[in-house]
Design a binder for these strands. Structure first.
Lengths: 133, 133
DNA sequence: ATAAAATCAGTAATCGTTATTGTTTCTATA
DNA sequence: TATAGAAACAATAACGATTACTGATTTTAT
């Protein structure tokens, strides 16, 4: 691990993610931060997102839809991903601890965590007349 | 949905996936099939993997590590992914139906499926002397 | 104040995947 | 069985997300 020096950009990225209740991609972070830092670089955004998630200060969500998403909410929760609009909603399930126990019984190694995504059609898409296929 | 005509390449791709107990990437499929079809194209592999997974004949696994993986085993199961070597192991959990019920209680839409991955260090890596960090 | 090291902006390169194009292979019908 | 239209192909270019590189800037310890 490097010495990790303060940087205004990294703080801004962290702050930005904390204020968002959706789950922006690196590119969204980049675009939004350009208002505050007109010449921040996309590489800087990526580097700091990786840094922050390695430090465990943000969560990285890989959601099938090409780009990765980032989540400033560290409280334990899962995601409901709409198969139509690909929006990511927070959702909370209680039984995670017992799931890990279950998995440990047959896993070929030490189980440390799990990632649980639910898929379906969100209400908004259903209301907009999208009914599967 | 297109008319879907027979193709030797698609059959070979399906057969290949059925015989594998690991979870190859498109590139692995491509490399291995080149022995049987010396000039099969990577585009053909991608197109048919997408086709087969749209038909529900194979499963697509997105595993964080850059590339997508494919699974010829359609029986319901989950995956244990080693955080060190990134190998993907099969694992079976019973409670999936009740998980979906739980999620449905609070999800902002109709829950149709879930994806459940477990993470940790596999026995092989543990034995090879890798002990976290 | 200063110097070493981390971070930066800018940009080129890489990687996985998809799209395009002109050719080949299936398959239905004659 | 010949043949014509459609689907699939190989080859390759294009694309989007991410990473690597380079020389300038910022932070921090002295």
């Amino acid at each position: 691990m490097p010495a990790l020096k303060y940087s205004r950009q990294r703080e801004a990225i962290r702050r930005f993610l904390m204020t968002r209740r959706d789950h922006p991609t690196a590119d969204t972070v980049y675009t939004c931060l350009r208002e505050e830092f007109p010449n921040i670089s996309l590489g800087t955004v990526y580097r700091n997102l990786t840094l922050l998630s390695d430090l465990g200060e943000i969560r990285r969500i890989s959601s099938d839809s090409g780009a990765e998403h980032f989540d400033g909410d560290l409280t334990p929760h899962q995601h409901f991903i709409c198969s139509h609009c690909h929006r990511i909603y927070d959702i909370r399930i209680d039984k995670i601890a017992s799931l890990l126990d279950d998995a440990q019984k047959t896993a070929p190694g030490k189980v440390e965590s799990c990632r649980l995504n639910f898929y379906g059609i969100c209400e908004q898409c259903a209301n907009d007349g999208f009914n599967e296929n």
